[in-house]
């Protein structure tokens, strides 16, 4: 009798061990996966080209930065209708969102603004007056955002506004790093090298301010 029980126990143990092994090598789904929420996946919809624009932007600096923004919206009074008087202190709970954004800002000069009057050539001497350096792109893609905390129901418009504020904060942070000046200096250097490679002996490049 005891021998039979032991044999059954070993068989059960062996069965469990086999299931465990198969789960480890991903041949069987794990038990917790059965109760895990399925990931939400989007359909593979086509891309539609709306515009094709020719550019001539000399990008000379990329500034990477990380900024955090916190936004709280106070809860509305529970009774806010004209017929029912509002009770002080009776409000819906506040909602709060904290976003972290890791973005990058591209700066440089727009060479499309170069006209004939900005280029002066005489023999082996050249003088080029570049337009002033500007921020060309601020990149904060969806994958650059992290939601650190989110309480309450945030509408799409509300979240978008918070993200735009975060973008503005990123621009301010990056501008403090003197990126425009650095972009102008680098553009000057690139243009000088290019003109020397193009055969000019005396090269003068200025950047608008």
């Amino acid at each position: 009798m005891r021998k039979t029980i032991t044999r059954y126990l070993w068989l059960i143990l062996l069965l469990l061990a086999t299931v465990f092994l198969l789960q480890q090598i991903k041949w069987l789904p794990s038990f917790k996966d059965v109760f895990t929420s399925q990931p939400l996946e989007i359909d593979n919809t086509p891309l539609v080209i709306k515009e094709i624009n020719a550019l001539a932007q000399l990008i000379t600096i990329t500034a990477y930065n990380e900024v955090v923004i916190e936004q709280t919206i106070k809860g509305a009074p529970v009774f806010s209708g004209p017929l029912v008087p509002s009770i002080p202190g009776m409000r819906f709970p506040d909602k709060k969102i904290i976003l972290i954004g890791k973005g990058k800002v591209l700066a440089g000069v727009d060479l499309a603004k170069l006209s004939d009057k900005n280029i002066f050539v005489k023999g082996d001497s050249v003088s080029v007056s570049l337009p002033k350096a500007v921020l060309l792109q601020v990149i904060l893609n969806p994958s650059d955002f992290e939601t650190f905390e989110e309480t309450g129901v945030w509408s799409d418009d509300e979240v978008r506004l918070v993200k735009q504020k975060l973008k503005d904060k990123l621009i301010i942070t990056v501008l403090r790093q003197n990126i425009i000046q650095k972009a102008g200096d680098k553009a000057k250097l690139i243009m000088e090298n290019f003109l020397r490679d193009a055969g000019f002996k005396k090269v003068t490049v200025t950047v608008g301010s």
């Binding site: 359909d43 539609v48 080209i49 550019l55 000399l58 990008i59 600096i61 930065n65 060309l136």
Partner: peptide
């Protein structure tokens, strides 16, 4: 590491594309 990075890229074209994001949460 986040810092300023010097580049020498000449951007010559910009494509503006649109896409529809469509999802149904009914698989759980």
């Amino acid at each position: 590491v986040m810092a300023l990075q010097q580049m020498s890229d000449l951007a010559t074209v910009e494509y503006v594309v649109t896409k529809i994001i469509k999802a149904s949460d009914n698989k759980t």
